[in-house]
Computed example of a mutant assay.
Amino acid sequence: MTEPAAPAFREARAEDVPAVVALVESAYRGESSRRGWTTEADLLDGQRTDPAGIAAVLHDPGSVLLLAEVDGRLLGCCELRSVGTSAYFGTFAVDPAQQGAGLGGRLLAEADAQAVRRWGAQALEMTVIAQRADLLAWYERRGFRRTGERRPFPYGDERFGRPRRDDLEFVVLRRATGTAG
């Protein structure tokens, strides 16, 4: 796959909410997600996010939703939230047709720099579904380490999808900011 042109990064605005929801859904759920490697379609049905969830990030003064665009086209996004001396990194999605071309790594690097610039964050922290060995390995190649902490999956809350199995849980990952990967 050819590496895309250098992305432009910017903060999401209210008018971006529908496009962000569509991007996140396409990267993780349904048949369109199977074009990329980040799909959760074998683990979860239903939605990954919704307009209210994305709008909540935009309205939280301690959060930012970063967008990565190439030629004005939304190709990636991620959420950053200030949490003490760290920043939570989540809502990370790359257009399935662009996965594997380096955009995710560029967006992660930008998120890292923004967390330091905005809040002086010393680390990025995130959660990944424990059953996603390929995704965990991707993050570990980029300097994240498992903390040993696990968090329960929110069974019964369809805002996060409908699980197809009963053993889902999250692994907490952390890396120091400024870590090359």
Rank of each mutant, 00 (worst) to 15 (best):
A55V: 06
V57M: 11
V57Q: 09
L58I: 00
L58R: 02
H59N: 14
D60I: 05
D60L: 05
D60Q: 10
G62C: 12
S63E: 14
S63V: 08
V64D: 02
L65T: 14
L65S: 11
L65W: 06
L66N: 10
L67C: 12
L67R: 01
A68S: 09
E69P: 00
E69S: 09
E69Q: 09
G72L: 07
R73W: 00
L74P: 10
L75K: 08
G76V: 03
G76I: 05
E79H: 08
L80C: 06
L80N: 09
L80T: 08
L80Y: 03
R81K: 13
S82G: 15
V83H: 11
T85W: 04
T85A: 14
T85Y: 07
S86P: 05
A87R: 11
F89N: 12
F89K: 00
F89G: 01
G90W: 02
G90V: 03
T91L: 15
T91V: 12
T91I: 13
F92N: 03
F92I: 04
A93N: 11
D95A: 15
A97M: 05
A97L: 11
Q98F: 11
Q98I: 13
A101F: 00
A101H: 06
G102A: 02
G102E: 04
L103V: 14
L103Y: 00
L103N: 06
G104V: 06
G104Y: 00
G105N: 11
R106S: 10
R106A: 15
R106T: 09
L107A: 04
L108N: 03
A109G: 13
A109H: 00
E110K: 11
E110Y: 02
A111P: 01
D112E: 10
D112H: 04
A113C: 07
A113M: 01
Q114V: 15
A115F: 02
A115R: 03
V116F: 02
R117D: 13
R117I: 00
R117H: 11
W119H: 10
W119D: 06
W119M: 09
G120K: 01
A121C: 08
A121M: 10
A121D: 09
A121T: 10
A123L: 00
A123C: 03
A123K: 07
L124T: 01
M126D: 08
T127D: 06
V128Y: 05
V128I: 06
I129L: 13
Q131T: 14
Q131P: 07
R132N: 09
A133R: 14
A133E: 14
D134G: 05
D134S: 14
L135T: 15
L136Y: 02
W138S: 08
W138I: 12
Y139V: 07
E140A: 11
E140V: 10
E140Q: 15
E140L: 02
R142V: 04
R142L: 00
G143Q: 11
F144C: 02
R145S: 11
R145K: 13
R146M: 03
G148Q: 08
